[in-house]
Amino acid sequence: MPVVVTRDLSVELGGGTVLDRVNLTADPGQIVAVQGVNGCGKSTLLRCLSGLLRPGGGEVEVLGAPPSADAAFWREVGLLAEEPAWYPGLSVREHLELVALTHGGAAPVDRTLDDFELASRAGASPLTLSSGQRQRLALAATMARPSRLLLLDEPEQKLDAGFRDRLARMIRAYADAGGTVVLATHDAALVAAMDATSLRMRDGRVTRPGPVAA
């Protein structure tokens, strides 16, 4: 059974068409990478899949039902979109401990700190981290907990080449374990390294598979 299905998904914002009859399917174990220039509709598509934006037309099903604000939905879905609002009084470690406390079965915090190259900054406030370190923390908070679906909006942003390679391996391992990933990205090398299904978007429509220049 597909994890994600859209049928003729359409969105209009500000009097313009942002998504135009988008059809998409993502199965268990599949990575779907949506590529296209800025403004083509990638982020809007992810917002519809997460339930943060209600489409104007068509249908969206995630895990067999429309996206929901219920806690049960978010136990199954991990979302990386805009940078989170960090708690100024909590350290990097404490943010990840909060994730582990909230979501049973999360990866051990020490292992997560190592995996995301944050161990040396575990005691720091996220507000003092570099932009790349904050991106790694956001990824850690999204990926360290159990889920069946990851929705990732340009996860490669602000990451150096070495960590992009590591991220590709992490996402591939998540899918190989049965998880499903839908991500928006400009990075064709990342798509290739993940062995993802590539969909090309232009002017709100899925046109054909294939890479797109950033």
Results as ranks from 00 to 15, higher is better:
88 P>W: 07
68 S>K: 12
46 L>M: 07
70 D>S: 15
67 P>T: 01
103 H>T: 11
79 L>V: 14
47 R>M: 11
96 L>K: 03
46 L>Y: 04
47 R>H: 12
76 E>R: 15
48 C>P: 08
68 S>A: 14
90 L>T: 01
74 W>Y: 14
48 C>L: 06
96 L>Q: 04
70 D>R: 15
46 L>D: 04
107 A>D: 10
63 L>D: 03
49 L>G: 00
109 V>L: 11
51 G>S: 12
95 H>V: 05
90 L>P: 00
89 G>M: 08
65 A>C: 08
105 G>I: 09
49 L>P: 00
94 E>S: 13
68 S>W: 08
68 S>G: 11
80 L>W: 01
55 P>K: 00
64 G>W: 07
86 W>F: 14
89 G>S: 12
94 E>F: 10
51 G>Q: 03
105 G>P: 01
67 P>M: 00
86 W>G: 05
65 A>Y: 10
59 E>I: 13
66 P>C: 08
74 W>E: 06
60 V>P: 00
97 E>P: 03
81 A>S: 14
88 P>Q: 09
81 A>M: 09
60 V>L: 05
51 G>P: 12
95 H>E: 03
57 G>E: 06
102 T>G: 14
103 H>Q: 07
83 E>H: 11
106 A>C: 14
80 L>T: 00
80 L>M: 13
71 A>P: 09
80 L>H: 03
59 E>A: 15
104 G>K: 12
